[in-house]
């Protein structure tokens, strides 16, 4: 299939591994899904200390289950990416460890205290879910199938994150103050989750033309604000003055993009932000420390077990 045919046929779940797709499509789809998969892993890595630090057994269970789900999403997504035939999962995880793999801006920032957990578990996951819901209609069928399961599970994450926020904002004065402070720190990053306006986004046009992406960054960001600003206010959070956000006549919102620090965003995006590099190194150490297990298993597999070889 050439690119013209791909564009003409592009639609929800239009292409599968049975199709002969042009290099451009397969590479663009790999880049997009690999980014998504990496983000699941790095998000989980950021959140994992809070399994331990959760202030009750039930919270600990929920947090463990949430981090577990994110790893499960990584599993689904790497597989969806792998099935494009460009890169293996091993290669993608290797690139993530050595700093070549890219992932969401929010997961480059350190998270130090429980009061920050809803910033990820409610707002970032809420934002992610806005986007993921639209990706159920992506043109790469395995990606859409992964999104079906991700969206099925993710509602728990957002609701649990919201429940933590509710608890903090109905807690002691100290908890409310600390949570507001955390919100002010995280708010611009959360808005930047959706990236820059489309005309500054390099890969956007192509991804839309072949049906990989369904909605623009702007549309998603606005849809997020419409839904989550009322939620934040509902729990008593004050929206920071910057970035400026305009309320339109119909009650929807629009952000003044120039108020956001895009230099920082692009530094982060290139894996050049020091705290994010720290996260990458930490995860790399963990991954390298269990390399021996993967090798031991593979040596056994070669030694006469009749386990079928994965064929792609």
């Amino acid at each position: 299939m050439n690119l013209e045919t791909v564009r003409a046929r592009a639609g929800p779940r239009a292409f599968s591994p049975a199709d002969d797709l042009p290099e451009e499509y397969r590479e663009a789809a790999t880049r997009m899904i690999e980014f998504h998969a990496n983000s699941e892993i790095m998000g989980a890595y950021l959140e994992r200390p809070f399994i331990r630090q959760a202030p009750s057994i039930d919270r600990k269970l929920a947090y463990s289950a949430k981090v577990q789900d994110e790893i499960g999403h990584g599993q689904l997504l790497y597989r969806a990416a792998e099935s494009l035939g460009v890169k293996s999962r091993e290669e993608m995880l290797e690139d993530l460890a050595n700093g070549d793999g890219k992932f969401l801006n929010c997961f480059h920032y350190p998270m130090e205290s429980w009061v920050e957990t809803p910033m990820i578990a409610f707002f970032v996951d809420g934002a992610a879910m806005r986007r993921q819901a639209t990706l159920r209609r992506t043109s790469w069928e395995p990606y859409a199938h992964a999104m079906d399961k991700v969206c099925f599970e993710e509602g728990f994450h957002v609701k649990h994150g919201e429940d933590i926020l509710r608890e903090l904002m109905t807690g002691s004065r100290k908890e409310r103050r600390l949570t507001q402070e955390a919100f002010e720190t995280w708010w611009p990053r959360i808005i930047q989750f959706f990236g820059p306006t489309d005309d500054r986004s390099t890969h956007h046009d192509f991804a839309v033309s072949v049906g990989l992406k369904q909605r623009s960054n702007d549309e998603l960001r606005n849809a997020f604000l419409d839904q989550y600003i009322p939620k934040a206010r509902n729990y008593g959070l004050e929206i920071p003055d910057e970035p400026r956000i305009r309320e339109r006549e119909d009650g929807t919102y629009e952000v003044e993009e120039g108020d956001l620090d895009w230099d920082e965003f692009f530094t982060v995006a290139k894996n050049e932000y020091e705290p994010g590099r720290e996260q990458i190194r930490g995860r790399r150490t963990a991954q390298e420390a269990v390399q021996w297990v993967r090798e031991a298993i593979e040596r056994d597999g070669a030694a006469g077990s009749h386990a079928p070889r994965a064929a792609d």
């Binding site: 809420g126 879910m129 806005r130 993921q132 819901a133 969206c151 099925f152 599970e153 993710e154 509602g155 728990f156 957002v158 609701k159 839904q227 989550y228």
Partner: peptide, 8 residues
């Protein structure tokens, strides 16, 4: 809740 959260 957001529609996708409600659907989930």
């Amino acid at each position: 809740d957001a529609s996708e959260v409600a659907e989930s």
